[in-house]
């Protein structure tokens, strides 16, 4: 199966992994770069598990990230990290499960805007809760070093990649594909549309929850506005579009592209970086609807 594609998933994985191992071995700068790369891969693969598969574009994936970060920050020094990070994933998944039924009834542009609004709503509710508790921010003293966090993040990125890869090849994935192609038709031929959507939606929140928890530890600082930043949701979608959400290689390519571009330009001029990112997004939507992955397909012989 893998060989059928232009550039095998394995090669891309190896490249990304090499960069991350490089990050582990050499100074703090590369550790941070590798951590960012692994984070975007984990987030975008998870996003793709739901949005890429079903065609329901979520513009509010940051909600899982933020909830996860909040769980870890809230329970910091109360619950050990080996427990609180998985709990962050569970909490994000449970939240998604809770809201899934009403949210997933909504379709098309309404769904896109709804996911965004929902993330903002949760953000402002938690902001008021934190203000009520008298905590405008929380400092996480004694969080693990970036090296340790990088390992966890690489694990999450790998897990998300494998999950997406597996779903693509499963009955579950076929069902989701059918929903993307024509939901009504899928329902008519007996695919349990609602159950599949709810499951995929909840599953796609678990890893971002844990990623959020790890990133809170990474910044040793927690503030609601920072972890619920809508830019995170937007970036995930941008990576998926640029890389291509068709299979598990797309998000990795997209994340490599984004992190590369950001490392080259972010410090020189964040504005030019973002302008280029916006132009790349526009270019991909217009001329490369299957993303960088589509380019690979074309090179490897279209089929």
């Amino acid at each position: 199966m893998i060989r059928a594609h232009g550039l095998p998933l394995a090669a891309i994985l190896a490249g990304a992994a090499a960069l991350m191992v490089f990050g582990l071995g050499s100074g703090s700068y590369w550790t941070i770069v590798a951590l960012n790369l692994a984070m975007w891969i984990a987030l975008t693969q998870s996003w793709s598990l739901f949005s890429g598969m079903t065609g329901y574009i979520s513009l509010g994936h940051v909600v899982a990230y933020g909830i996860g970060a909040y769980v870890v920050a809230f329970s910091f020094k109360i619950v050990p990290l080996w427990l609180s990070i998985p709990l962050a994933g569970v909490a994000a998944g449970l939240f998604a499960l809770m809201v899934a039924l009403p949210v997933l009834r909504v379709r098309g542009p309404y769904f896109v805007i709804l996911t965004f609004g929902l993330a903002e709503l949760v953000k402002y509710i938690l902001l008021n809760v934190e203000t009520g508790l008298g905590k405008s921010s929380r400092l996480l003293f004694g969080a693990p070093k970036p090296d340790t966090l990088l390992w966890i993040m690489v694990g999450l990125a790998a897990a998300a990649t494998v999950a997406l890869y597996a779903v693509h090849r499963s009955r579950f994935g076929r069902g989701l594909d059918a929903i993307r192609e024509d939901e009504t038709a899928a329902e008519t031929i007996g695919i349990p549309v609602v159950r599949l959507k709810v499951l995929a939606y909840a599953a796609s929140a678990v890893i971002p929850g844990m990623v959020g928890g790890v990133m809170a530890l990474r910044s040793t600082y927690f503030e609601v506005l920072q972890v619920f930043n809508p830019t995170i949701s937007f970036t995930i979608v941008t990576i998926a579009i640029i890389g291509g959400a068709g299979d598990a290689r797309g998000p990795i390519l997209g994340a490599l592209f984004l992190v590369g571009l950001s490392e080259v330009l972010q410090n020189a001029s964040p504005q030019i970086y973002l302008i280029l990112l916006g132009l790349c997004l526009i270019g991909c939507v217009l001329f490369l609807p299957t993303g960088l992955v589509g380019l690979l397909h074309r090179k490897g012989g279209a089929r």
Binding site: G55, I57, P109, V112, F234, V237, T238, I241, P270, Q271, I272, L274, I275, L277, G278, L279, C280, L281, I282, V285, L286
Partner: peptide
């Protein structure tokens, strides 16, 4: 869907 993404790109470009 595509107009949403295109305008999102436009919005980033214009802001910056």
């Amino acid at each position: 869907a595509s107009s949403l993404l295109l305008f999102f790109g436009v919005s980033i470009v214009m802001q910056n």
